[in-house]
Amino acid sequence: MANSAGSKKRARQAEKRRQHNASLRSMARTYLKKVNAAVEAGDKEAAQAAYGVAVSAMDKAASKGIFHQNKVSRHKSRLNAQIKAL
């Protein structure tokens, strides 16, 4: 438990940052699920539109340290390959 004023403030900041990071991570995962759903349905136009939004969200999250850049690149590559295969 935080006792000093400084440690109490750091605890508040850490919790706020944790919630913000969780929100960004959840949003990016939701966009990935939308792309996967469109691919499963076989709808190429919807998949491409969802892919653009997902790539933007994943890149922003990677730039903020939410995801590792290699993980983002791997997801983008695999999703793009699935869309091209439609």
Rank of each mutant, 00 (worst) to 15 (best):
N70V: 12
K76T: 01
S63Q: 15
K44E: 11
Y51L: 03
R29F: 06
L24N: 05
K9V: 14
A81M: 11
N80L: 07
A54T: 01
F67I: 07
S26T: 14
R78H: 08
S4R: 05
V35N: 05
Q82E: 09
H20M: 15
A61Y: 08
V53R: 07
Y51K: 01
S7V: 03
E45W: 06
L32D: 04
L86N: 01
K71S: 15
L86D: 00
K33H: 14
M1H: 07
A5R: 08
G52H: 03
S63R: 15
A47C: 05
G65N: 04
V55H: 04
S23M: 15
K16P: 02
A54F: 01
A41H: 02
L86K: 01
A61W: 10
S7W: 11
A11C: 11
M27V: 09
K33F: 11
M58C: 09
R29K: 06
R12H: 07
S73A: 14
L24S: 06
L79E: 04
V35F: 07
H20F: 13
R10T: 03
S4T: 12
S23A: 13
V53Q: 07
A54R: 01
Q19V: 10
K8S: 05
A41G: 02
K9A: 13
K44Q: 08
A57E: 12
M27C: 04
E15F: 12
K16S: 12
R78N: 05
A38Q: 00
L86V: 00
A85I: 00
K71A: 15
R18D: 08
G52S: 02
N80T: 02
A47F: 10
Y31D: 10
S77P: 04
A5C: 01
S4F: 05
S26W: 07
S7P: 04
A11V: 14
V72S: 03
Y51F: 08
R18F: 05
Y51C: 00
I66Q: 00
V55L: 07
A54V: 02
I83D: 00
G6S: 14
A37T: 12
V35L: 09
R18Q: 08
K76E: 02
S73R: 11
A2R: 14
N80Y: 06
A81S: 13
Q13I: 02
Y51T: 00
K64M: 04
R78K: 11
R78E: 05
A37K: 10
A62D: 06
S7R: 12
